[in-house]
Amino acid sequence: MANSVHNQMVKIDASGVLHRELNAKLRDEVANGTQKIQIHNVYGQRYIGTDLGKPVEIEIFGTPGNDLGAFMDGLRIIVHGNAQDGCGNTMNEGEIIVHGHAGDITGLAARGGKIFVRDDVGYRAGIHMKEYGDKKPVVVIGGTAQDFFGEYMAGGILILLGLNLNEGTRHRANFVGTGMHGGVIYLRGGIEDYQLGKEVGVAQIEEEDCQILQKFVSQFASHFGYDVGEILKHNFCKLFPRWLRPYGRLYAY
């Protein structure tokens, strides 16, 4: 990558390139001081953006493979297409913006950073997300989610907007928040009690929640060209863990 120039945007053609090669190229670019990278013709290469650890921006055109931004620490990734499974796996810091759908376990075990998905996510999104100190992961999903949304959640913020739900229909996910023992889920669009995990409580949103929603839904809207006021006009509800230690009474000592 001798021809790359500091601070300039670099384009990489990923067609026919394996993930190991592609990531090696990205490492070289970032080591050379490149701040912005466009990757074109991405066809399922995994682990894009892992091990870069610098606040650079990567724009992906195509379909990145599983574990996009796994263990990510400070990057900004914009996907023009759909993301696959494990997007943001164990992410520490940074931002992933998906102009499309994302697959299963989006944001698995994330400890920090933000993920914005314009459309739907697969099963178990936000599973075992946690938070620590000033680190608080935020996942905002424009569409709807599959079962076990927010399972085992230990921290962070999940926002599910249901923008693609028809009037009068509700989210389809079951077992939402099963095992949840931290963090908060905001839902726009209907959900029935039987769809929730037994560790989850439902509450009306309060002023503090409105501020959180205003902040992150605005960011979502600006990424994807929505009107934030229009989105926030609808009713939201808040799902919270009923117990911080749901498994505290399991044992005989």
Binding site: H128, Y132, A154, G155, H181
Partner: peptide, 21 residues
């Protein structure tokens, strides 16, 4: 322990049975 595990003090640290991925 909280600083090293990166979870809030006094919360249960739950390692699920499987890796979810």
């Amino acid at each position: 322990v909280s600083t090293t595990r990166m979870i809030p003090q006094g919360t249960d640290a739950i390692s699920p049975a499987p890796h979810h991925d």
